[in-house]
Design a protein around this nucleic acid. Structure first.
Length: 451
DNA sequence: TGATTATTTGA
DNA sequence: CAAATAATC
């Protein structure tokens, strides 16, 4: 009697450097590993089109690398996973350990529902497991820089062994999941799906761009960032693999790249210790802050029609591609929270709905950083000037012209202040919805009131 | 991983 | 008096 194990996939859609897959393989013996992905209604139905497309295409690429044995099911994992386990008489269900509030609740519910079938968690989506790095007194770090130092000193193992001849077990997908995924998979994508594409992208980046990353990553019009985040979001690559491939590099660019990966680990660690910070102010510093209710101005912000070119370019890039340059994320977030005086979760929700790399911990804590409510956050008085930021990080105006066609007739950095040119608004570009200088003062007044 | 304003510096 | 630097929000 041979019994398979189930590998229930979530944020680990890859073949290599996959400890949970190796553990499932080890335990299964000749019974084989049944790879299962559950399309969760709560996560799938609310996701934007571009986000769904990225997941769908990533699943198709994964299926190909799993000899097309990947099983897709639609429904609540607490009923679906035990049902599949019963169908195939599974020995155990293997997963990569989750650290988000939803993931932890869900996995606990699945474990209860599985009854006698054990749920075995191996590894995490991080180089160092969230919660592992602690201060000398046993409490978590609240400030990034000391965390990053301790994280680096803690170190991490090298990539897991390459799997050798995994024996896959077989079962059927359900129609609803198959249809959902195949319908969603149509269309262009920011980057190519799949593990091979991810590793290729990273190798290109290491070869061509990482040395200049510390300066080029801030230039909105330059393809100076790695664009590896959509892969990290779904675990198409493991950060350990990425870190290993830049470990021998001593350039400032490589160091900055390691620091960016450390930010991802830091925010996952913060979320592990403070699950409520996903959607609530982490620090009570701004309790009682006077926010405006979302209205027409927020709609203008979402549509990229605020009249501030750098902001609008970013918001349109987000809608069109499911991605936004990180510098512009900070500027657009500052605009919503400090020029429009809207509470950060409104913006965080919009980003998460559309970003193909939308990761709860990184996204929402990034928003808290901008709004001044996060741990180690920007001080409340730090307000980005959308014009100055545009002129500094898109000095030639190419980024704005790429995403805001109504401004293509303006040359150079003139695009950043169309109101200064007689024909600036000649092609339908909207007037500024607010006056930045005035709203900056208003933001400072409101912050002052709760200080 | 700011911006603004006041102040100092140096051609 | 423009540009660097410091102080302040």
């Amino acid at each position: 009697m041979v019994r398979p194990t189930i590998l229930w996939l979530r944020r680990d859609l890859r073949l290599h450097d996959h400890p949970a897959l190796l553990a499932a393989h080890e335990e299964a013996g000749s019974g084989g590993v049944l790879p299962l992905f559950v399309v969760e209604p709560g996560l799938w139905d609310g996701a934007g089109e571009v986000r769904r497309r990225w997941l769908a295409q990533s699943l198709q690429a994964l299926a190909a690398s799993y000899d097309h044995r990947l099983v897709l099911r639609y429904g609540d994992p607490a009923s679906v996973v035990p049902a599949v386990a019963a169908e195939v008489d599974a020995r155990a269900v293997h997963v990569t350990r989750e650290s988000t509030p939803h993931g932890r609740r869900r996995d606990a519910a699945v474990e209860r529902a599985l009854g006698d079938v054990p749920l075995r968690a191996t590894g995490t989506p991080y180089a160092v497991a969230p919660g592992r790095v602690l201060k000398g007194d046993g409490t978590p770090y609240a400030v990034f820089t000391p965390f990053a130092r301790a994280w680096h000193d803690h170190g991490w193992p090298g990539p897991a062994d390459a799997p050798r001849r995994i024996r896959w077990a077989a079962s059927d997908s359900d129609d609803q999941a198959v249809t959902a995924v195949s319908d969603a998979a149509d269309g262009e994508q920011l980057v190519q799906p799949g593990e091979d594409a991810a590793l290729g992208r990273w190798d290109d980046f290491v070869e061509e761009a990482v040395a200049a990353y510390d300066t080029d990553r801030d230039r909105a019009a330059v393809d100076g960032t790695s664009r590896i985040s959509p892969y990290l979001k779904l675990g198409v690559v493991h950060p350990r693999t990425l870190l290993q491939r830049i470990a021998h590099l001593r350039s400032n660019g490589a160091a900055t790249m390691r620091t960016e990966l450390a930010w991802r680990e830091f925010y996952a660690d913060v979320l592990w210790h403070h699950p409520r910070s996903a959607w609530h102010d982490l620090r009570p510093a701004l309790t009682g802050m006077d926010y405006d209710e979302p209205g027409d101005l927020v709609d203008a912000w979402k549509a990229g029609r605020t009249g501030y070119p750098f902001v609008d370019a970013g918001m349109r890039q987000l809608l069109a591609t499911g991605w936004m340059h990180n510098r512009v994320r900070m500027v657009t977030a500052s605009f919503l929270t400090k020029d429009l005086h809207v509470w950060w979760p409104i913006g965080a929700r919009h980003f998460l709905d559309h970003l193909v790399d939308g990761d709860l911990a990184s996204n929402n804590h990034g928003w808290q950083w901008v709004s001044g409510t996060g741990t180690d956050a920007a001080p409340y008085f730090r307000v980005f000037n959308p014009v100055t930021q545009g002129e500094r990080f898109d000095p030639d105006g190419d980024y704005v012209r790429r995403w805001v066609p109504e401004l293509r007739h303006l040359d150079g950095k003139a695009v950043h202040q169309p109101w200064k040119h007689a024909d600036g608004h000649a092609h339908g570009y909207p007037e500024r919805v607010v006056d930045h200088a005035e709203e900056r003062r208003e933001a400072l007044r409101r912050y002052e009131a709760v200080r």
